[in-house]
Simulated scan of single mutants.
Amino acid sequence: MGTVQVNSIKAWLLAARPKTLAGAATPVLLGCALAYAEGRFQMIPALLCFLFAFLMQIDANFINDYFDYLKGSDREDRLGPERACAQGWITLDAMRKGIALTTAAACLTGACLLAYGGFEMIPVGILCILFAFLYTAGPYPLAYHGWGDILVIVFFGFVPVGCTYYVMCRDWTWNVTLASLACGLIIDTLLMVNNYRDRDQDAKSGKRTIVVRWGAKTGQRLYLFLGLTAAWLCLLFIPTGHIWAALLPQIYLLPHFMAWQRMVKISKGKELNSILGETSRNMLLFGILLASGLIL
C-alpha cells in the first residue's frame, strides 16, 4: 500500500472505498432505466439520486470503519481491504468530523430531491441515514446480528430503485418491484462473499452473520442462489412486454456461476478478495444488462 500520511487526501480516498460505489450506482441506474422506458426520465433528479447514493455509500463506509474499529473487529488477521482507523491513516476525531460532513452533504442533496419527490421523501432519507448508523453502531448493531442481508435487499434494492423512479414518475409499478428485488438480491451476493471470506474472523468478533450461524456450505449455496434467483426473476418482465429486460440478464448467469465455482475452490483466505472483485464486476454487468433491456 505504501506510506499513507495521517488524515491525507489519500487516506480519505482509501477510507471512502471507491470500488464500493458500483453497489450504489447500480440501483439508481435501474431506477433511471425504468423511468426512461416510460418516457419520464429527468436528468437533474437522476444526477441528484446518483449523488445521494454515492454520499450515503461513502458515509456508510466511514461509519463502518469507525465503529468496527471501536468494537475491535478490525484486527491484525483481517482478510478484507485495510481500514483507515485501524491502520491509523485517519484519527478517530477526524473520522467523526468526516462522518458528520458526509451525512450533512447527503441531507442537503436529499433536500434538493424534495422538489421532485415531495415531502414523502423525508422519512425515506431519515431511514437511510438512521440505518447507516444502526448497521454497526449502537447497543444492537444490525450487521453483528445477521440482519445485513435483509438490509441490503431493502436499502440497495427497494429504496434506491423505487425512490429514483418515484422522484421522476411519482408512481410505483410491478416492474419497479421486480427490478428492486432483483437488484437487492444481486448486490447481496457481494455481502455474501464478503461474509463467507470473513467467517472465522467474524465468529471471533461475535459478528453473527448468516455464514457464521449456518456455516460455510450455506454461504456457498446462498451466493449461487442469490444470483440465479435475481436473473430468473427478470423472466417475469415478459408479461409486461419487456422481452429484452427478461433475456439480457440471463447472460449474467455464466460469469456468476464461474465466480461461484472459484469461490468454492478457494474456500478460505485473502485469495477470496479476487472473488469479491469478480462479484462486483458481475453485479455491475447485471445492472447494465437489465437497464439496457428496460430501455430497449
Results as ranks from 00 to 15, higher is better:
residue 166 Y to V: 09
residue 177 T to F: 04
residue 154 V to Y: 11
residue 149 D to N: 11
residue 177 T to H: 13
residue 176 V to L: 07
residue 158 F to W: 01
residue 148 G to I: 06
residue 157 G to K: 00
residue 162 G to K: 00
residue 172 W to I: 00
residue 171 D to I: 04
residue 185 L to S: 08
residue 149 D to T: 05
residue 154 V to T: 13
residue 154 V to Q: 07
residue 173 T to V: 09
residue 169 C to F: 04
residue 180 S to R: 02
residue 167 V to P: 00
residue 163 C to I: 12
residue 155 F to W: 03
residue 166 Y to T: 07
residue 151 L to K: 02
residue 176 V to G: 01
residue 171 D to T: 06
residue 164 T to R: 00
residue 186 I to D: 09
residue 170 R to K: 15
residue 172 W to F: 01
residue 151 L to I: 09
residue 167 V to R: 11
residue 144 Y to R: 01
residue 167 V to W: 09
residue 170 R to P: 02
residue 174 W to G: 00
residue 143 A to C: 10
residue 161 V to T: 09
residue 170 R to C: 08
residue 165 Y to E: 14
residue 177 T to Y: 03
residue 185 L to T: 05
residue 182 A to I: 08
residue 156 F to N: 10
residue 153 I to L: 15
residue 165 Y to F: 12
residue 181 L to R: 07
residue 144 Y to T: 10
residue 144 Y to G: 04
residue 165 Y to S: 03
residue 144 Y to M: 08
residue 176 V to Q: 05
residue 155 F to S: 09
residue 147 W to Q: 11
residue 173 T to N: 07
residue 143 A to R: 03
residue 142 L to E: 13
residue 149 D to V: 10
residue 179 A to G: 13
residue 175 N to P: 11
residue 172 W to Q: 02
residue 160 P to R: 07
residue 150 I to M: 15
residue 160 P to C: 12
residue 178 L to F: 07
residue 144 Y to V: 10
residue 163 C to H: 13
residue 184 G to R: 02
residue 172 W to R: 00
residue 183 C to W: 02
residue 166 Y to I: 04
residue 146 G to D: 14
residue 181 L to F: 05
residue 175 N to T: 14
residue 150 I to G: 11
residue 182 A to T: 08
residue 142 L to H: 08
residue 152 V to S: 06
residue 150 I to Q: 13
residue 162 G to M: 04
residue 166 Y to D: 11
residue 168 M to Y: 01
residue 171 D to R: 02
residue 153 I to V: 15
residue 182 A to Y: 08
residue 151 L to D: 08
residue 167 V to N: 11
residue 142 L to A: 13
residue 176 V to R: 04
residue 157 G to P: 02
residue 143 A to Y: 01
residue 171 D to P: 00
residue 153 I to W: 01
residue 154 V to C: 13
residue 149 D to K: 06
residue 170 R to L: 15
residue 181 L to A: 02
residue 182 A to K: 02
residue 148 G to N: 13
residue 164 T to P: 06
residue 156 F to Y: 15
residue 179 A to Q: 06
residue 161 V to E: 07
residue 144 Y to A: 13
residue 153 I to T: 02
residue 169 C to S: 14
residue 169 C to D: 07
residue 142 L to K: 06
residue 154 V to K: 07
residue 175 N to H: 06
residue 142 L to V: 12
residue 151 L to F: 14
residue 168 M to T: 13
residue 165 Y to V: 01
residue 158 F to R: 00
residue 163 C to V: 14
residue 167 V to Y: 09
residue 174 W to R: 04
residue 162 G to H: 00
residue 154 V to G: 14
residue 156 F to S: 14
residue 161 V to C: 09
residue 163 C to R: 03
residue 170 R to T: 11
residue 149 D to F: 06
